[in-house]
Design a protein around this nucleic acid. Structure first.
Length: 708
DNA sequence: TTCTGTTCTGTTTTT
DNA sequence: CAGAACAGAA
C-alpha cells in the first residue's frame, strides 16, 4: 500500500477537533477518508458503530464501506455506519416517527409522486396555466433546503407569484401529512426540525455519534449543513472533505459556500489542503488548472503532480453529431485493436443524456461493447412504479398517490368520473381514497356497478395487506399479489410488442429480486436491532428501494470490458485512463440555460440581491456568471477524470428539434492553454465539408467500412 | 371507458 | 423527430 504524503497524514491523524479537507481532483481523498476511519477505530479505540460517514450516492457509500472493510481485516469495522444523507435521514425518521409528524409505514414520494399531488392542487385552484408542477416543486424544494416552513415562506414572499407558490407549498405539505408521506427533501428537513426542537432526541443522537465524516461536502445544501451541525453537537468531532472546484450541484440546492461557513461556526476548525494530484498526467492537469483559473475561488489551491507530461490533448472538429460519434467509435475500436487498449479504460462524457444516442448507434455498428449510465432510470419505468405503488399501498393505506396510480392498473374499468366522485367523498370525510372505497356511505354517491368495482379493489388490498403483514417474508406476499392481479397479462395486452411485454415482466422480476435481497439484508440488521416491528418491514423495503437508483443496477452489468458512456455529473468521483469529452460547443457545454441566465442578468443590471448568509466570499462574480461558472466546473470535472489521454470533440452542425443548426465552439476550448492542445483538423476544410454535408450519411457509412 | 389517430411540445444535470 | 398529451369515435 502506498504511504500517505504529509498532508494526507495530517488529515488522517487530526482527530482532536473539526477538520475541513479541501481535496483537489485526484488527490487521494478516498484514501484519506478510509484511512481516517481505520485510524479512529484502531488507534483511538472508537467503536465502529459510533462513526458515521455520509455520502451523496449509494455507490460511494458502498465503496467506502468496502474499502474500510479491507483495511480492517479483523471485522472491527462491523457496525460502521456509512450511508447517503437520504438513507441516514430515512433511518432517523423511522426511529423518531412521531416526533417527525409521521406514522410507521409512511411512504416516500419521489418527484413524480410529488408532481401528481401538486398537479391536483393546481387544478383545484385553476392555476394549471400559471405554473407547471415541476417548477412549483423546484421552488418548494428550495424553501425546504433553506429550512423554511410554509408560513414563513408566505410571509417573506415579495410578490403575488411567490405568495401563490408559498400557499401551494402549504397545501402540498398538508397533503403529505394526510397521506402519511414525505418527499426527498423531507428526509433531511424533518430530522433537522426534530433535532432542533427535541432536546432529548438531539442529545441521544449526539451521544451516539463520536465522529462524523462527510464526503463531497461542497454538495451539501442548507438543510444538510444544519443536519451535520446538529448531529455533531458542541463537541464538533467531524471531518468534512470537499472541493469547491467540483461543485456542480448548485441547481439542486447545493451551497459550496458551506465550506467557508464552517470557519465561522467552528473557530478551531483546521483546514488541510490536498494539492498533489495522483491521477492525471501533467498536460491534463495544466489544462484543468488553466480552465478553472477563469473562475473565482473560495480556497486558493494549486494542483500539481509528478507524473510524466503524457500525451497532448486533442480537439477533434466534426461535421455533425453522427460524424462525431462515428469518429470516436472508430478510434476507440482502432486503439483497442492496435494498441490493446481495453474498452473498460475508456469513457465518453457529455453534458446531457440525449447526446448519448449517436454514440450508442455508432458503437453498436462497430460491435464495440459499451455501458450506458443514466437515461431512463430503472425505477422510473412504468411497470416498476406500478408494482412499487402497490407495495406502498400495502404498507401505507393512506398513500393516495399510490392509490391513484394503481386504481386502474390493471384495467378495472374505473374511470375519471368515478374517481372524481370517490375523491369528493373521501375529501368530505377526510378519508384516504383506499379507505373511502370500503366505506358503507359511499353507495349514496355512486352507481352500483362502480361501487362494486371499488369495493372489490378495497377488498383485494385489505386481504393482501394482512397477508403481507402476517408473512415472515413480505416479498413472498408481494409475489402473490403480482400473480393475483395478473400483471403479466396486463403487460401482454398493453405493451406495444411481445418483446416489450417480456422486458417489462423481466423488470418486475428484477424488482422482486431486489426486494428479496434488501429483505435479507434488513433481516440480518434486525437480528441485532430489536426495534423493527413486522408491519414496518415492507414499508422500509419500499422506501429503501425508492432511494436506490440506476447506479446500483449498473454494478451487475459493469463487469465486462466496456466503454463507459455517461454525463459529466455522473462521472464525478470516477477516473478513466482515456476520456473523450464530447460536444464542446456553446449552448451545449456552457449549457443554453446558463447562457440565457447570463443574458437576463446583463439585461437588468440590478439583480435581486440574495438575502442570505452574509458570509462574503470576496469573489468578484460578474452579473449572471454563476451559471457559467458552474458549467466551467463541470468541464473541469470532465477533464480531471482523465489519467492518460484526453480528447475533446465538437460538431460544426447539429440536429436540434429536427432542424440543423450550426454550432460555435465552446468558450471553454479557448480558455484552455493552447500549448497543451493539439488540433489535428485544419479549419479550412469547411467548404469541402459543406459540400459533403448533403451526402453525410453516405460518407459516414464509407468511413465505417473502410476502417476495418 | 377505452382505443386510436392527431397535435404539440420539448432537451440540463439527480438524491 | 419523437414521445407525450389530448380529443374524438366506438
Amino acid at each position: 500500500m502506498p504511504s500517505l504524503n504529509p498532508r494526507q497524514a495530517e488529515a488522517v491523524e487530526h482527530t482532536g477537533g473539526p477538520l475541513l479537507v479541501i481535496a483537489g481532483a485526484g488527490s487521494g481523498k478516498t484514501r484519506v477518508i478510509t484511512r481516517k476511519i481505520a485510524h479512529l477505530i484502531r488507534a483511538h479505540g472508537v467503536p465502529a458503530h459510533a462513526i458515521v460517514a455520509l455520502t451523496f450516492t449509494n455507490k460511494a457509500a458502498r465503496e467506502m464501506k468496502a474499502r474500510v472493510g479491507t483495511l480492517l481485516k479483523g471485522g472491527s469495522g462491523r457496525g460502521l455506519k456509512v450511508s447517503t444523507f437520504h438513507t441516514f435521514g430515512l433511518n432517523l425518521l423511522r426511529r423518531e416517527v412521531e416526533g417527525a409528524g409521521l406514522r410507521l409505514g409512511f411512504s416516500l414520494f419521489d418527484a413524480e409522486d410529488a408532481a401528481t399531488v401538486l398537479k391536483e392542487h393546481l387544478r383545484e385552484h385553476a392555476l394549471a396555466d400559471a405554473v407547471t408542477p415541476a417548477a412549483a416543486l423546484a421552488r418548494i424544494s428550495r424553501w425546504k433546503n433553506d429550512l423554511m416552513e410554509p408560513a414563513r415562506a408566505a410571509s417573506t414572499a415579495d410578490d403575488d407569484f411567490e405568495a401563490m407558490l408559498a400557499d401551494l407549498y402549504g397545501r402540498y405539505q398538508q397533503s403529505l401529512t394526510a397521506y402519511n408521506a414525505c418527499d426527498f427533501d423531507d428526509l433531511i428537513a424533518r430530522p433537522v426540525r426534530l433535532l432542533r426542537d427535541d432536546r432529548d432526541a438531539r442529545e441521544r443522537w449526539q451521544n451516539r455519534i463520536r465522529h462524523l465524516l462527510v464526503d463531497e461536502y461542497q454538495d451539501t445544501n442548507g438543510a444538510q449543513y444544519e443536519l451535520v451541525r446538529l448531529l455533531v453537537g458542541p463537541r464538533g468531532a467531524f471531518t468534512v472533505v470537499g472541493d469547491d472546484d467540483q461543485s456542480i450541484y448548485a441547481w439542486r440546492g447545493a451551497r459550496p459556500d458551506n465550506l467557508a461557513r464552517l470557519r465561522d461556526h467552528y473557530p478551531t476548525l483546521r483546514v488541510v489542503m490536498l494539492e498533489q494530484n495522483y491521477r492525471s498526467s501533467a498536460r491534463i492537469l495544466k489544462l484543468a488548472n488553466g480552465l478553472i483559473g477563469h473562475n473565482p475561488h473560495l480556497f486558493d489551491k494549486r494542483l500539481w503532480c509528478d507524473l510524466g507530461p503524457g500525451e497532448p490533448a486533442r480537439v477533434l472538429v466534426c461535421r455533425d453529431e453522427a460524424h462525431e460519434a462515428e469518429r470516436v467509435a472508430a478510434e476507440i475500436q482502432h486503439t483497442h485493436l492496435t494498441k490493446d487498449r481495453p474498452y473498460g479504460s475508456i469513457a465518453i462524457l457529455y453534458r446531457s443524456n440525449h447526446q448519448a444516442r449517436p454514440f450508442e448507434q455508432a458503437l453498436r455498428a462497430l460491435s464495440v461493447p459499451y455501458f450506458l449510465s443514466g437515461g431512463t432510470s430503472f425505477f422510473a419505468r412504468a411497470e416498476v412504479k406500478d408494482v412499487m405503488a402497490y407495495l406502498r399501498l400495502l404498507a401505507n393505506p393512506a398513500d393516495d398517490a399510490a392509490f391513484l396510480r394503481v386504481v386502474n392498473v390493471p384495467r378495472r374499468e374505473i374511470g375519471p368520473t368515478t374517481l372524481q366522485r370517490l375523491a369528493a367523498f373521501a375529501a368530505e370525510g377526510e378519508l384516504p381514497l383506499a379507505a373511502a372505497c370500503a366505506d358503507p356511505l359511499l353507495g349514496e354517491h355512486l352507481p352500483k356497478r362502480q361501487l362494486g368495482r371499488l369495493a372489490e379493489l378495497a377488498g383485494l388490498l385489505a386481504e393482501q395487506r394482512s397477508q403481507a403483514q402476517a408473512a415472515a417474508n413480505p416479498v413472498a406476499a408481494v409475489r402473490a399479489l403480482v400473480e393475483r392481479i395478473d400483471y403479466a397479462g396486463w403487460c401482454r395486452d398493453n405493451a406495444p410488442s411481445r418483446a416489450a411485454a417480456e422486458r417489462r415482466m423481466d423488470n418486475v422480476a428484477d424488482l422482486l429480486d431486489w426486494l428479496e435481497r434488501l429483505h435479507r439484508e434488513a433481516a440480518a440488521d434486525a437480528a441485532k436491532d430489536a426495534g423493527s416491528a413486522a408491519g414496518t418491514r415492507l414499508s422500509d423495503l419500499v422506501a429503501r428501494l425508492t432511494l436506490l437508483d440506476v447506479l446500483e443496477r449498473q454494478d451487475e452489468a459493469e463487469g465486462g470490458d466496456r466503454v463507459h458512456l455517461m454525463t459529466l455529473h455522473a462521472a464525478k468521483g470516477l477516473e478513466f485512463p482515456h476520456v473523450y469529452l464530447v460536444g464542446m460547443e456553446e449552448a451545449l457545454l456552457p449549457h443554453r440555460s446558463s447562457l440565457e441566465e447570463a443574458e437576463d442578468a446583463a439585461a437588468r443590471p440590478e439583480t435581486v440581491a440574495d438575502t442570505d448568509t452574509g458570509a462574503d466570499t470576496g469573489a468578484d462574480t460578474g452579473a449572471g456568471q454563476t451559471g457559467i461558472q458552474e458549467e466551467r466546473r463541470l468541464c473541469y470535472v470532465g477533464i480531471t477524470r482523465a489519467r492518460q489521454s484526453l480528447t475533446f470533440t465538437r460538431a460544426r452542425r447539429r440536429r436540434r428539434y429536427g432542424e440543423t443548426v450550426t454550432c460555435e465552439p465552446s468558450r471553454f476550448l479557448a480558455e484552455l492553454p493552447a500549448a497543451e492542445l493539439h488540433q489535428p483538423d485544419s479549419t479550412q476544410r469547411s467548404d469541402a465539408e459543406a459540400r459533403a454535408h448533403g451526402s453525410a450519411q453516405l460518407a459516414a457509412l464509407k468511413g465505417l467500412f473502410t476502417d476495418r
